[in-house]
């Protein structure tokens, strides 16, 4: 039983409850605490995913920067893929490449994989330990080192600070 894990999950669930109900009435708050507490106790004790996260000011600032970086990447690459779709010749050069990540924590790896999937042009297919298999719509290199630099260079440094 990991008390920190349960506490983090409880805070997250209770915040979502507040956003969904949108009121601060007493009955709603009591119900929210009860439901969030039950779910956190039930699902938090067996997993260790939420326990690693610690909210220091540095982590908060880096998370905000990460949010902006990923939003910009999503917009940029969406325009790129949209131009490929409109083009009558359909200029694609797809393939599945392998890249390696330096991140150790499971949560960091999960967020990295989801970020790669969210930016169009790259799609995470499988993770085996520190190797990620990526479907790339425009393969520039098959070398693992160069492909890693090309695909996750911007995300990895920030996530390394956030999840250590």
């Amino acid at each position: 039983m990991n008390i920190r894990n349960v506490a983090n999950l409880f805070v997250l669930l209770f915040l979502i409850w507040l956003l969904l109900t949108g009121t601060f009435e007493l009955t709603s708050l009591v119900l929210g605490v009860t439901i969030a507490g039950l779910f956190a106790l039930n699902f938090g004790k067996n997993s260790s995913v939420f326990g690693k996260f610690r909210l220091t000011p540095k982590v908060f600032v880096y998370s905000l920067i990460y949010l902006f970086v990923i939003a910009w990447e999503i917009v940029k690459s969406n325009i790129d893929v949209a131009l490929r779709v409109i083009n009558p010749k359909l200029p694609i050069n797809p393939g599945i490449v392998k890249i390696k990540t330096r991140l150790k924590s499971p949560m960091g790896r999960m967020i990295l994989a989801n970020s790669i999937t969210l930016t169009p042009g790259t799609l995470t297919i499988d993770i085996k330990d520190d190797e990620l298999y990526i479907h790339w719509i425009d393969v520039k290199t098959l070398d693992a080192e160069k492909a890693s630099q090309e695909i996750l260079g911007k995300f990895e440094k920030l996530l390394e600070v956030i999840y250590g």
Binding site: I74, L90, I92, L118, L123
Partner: peptide
């Protein structure tokens, strides 16, 4: 328009 499943995912779901 895309020719196979992975490219369809790339073009479809993200857009």
């Amino acid at each position: 328009r895309m020719p196979d499943l992975f490219n369809r995912i790339q073009a479809g779901t993200k857009a």
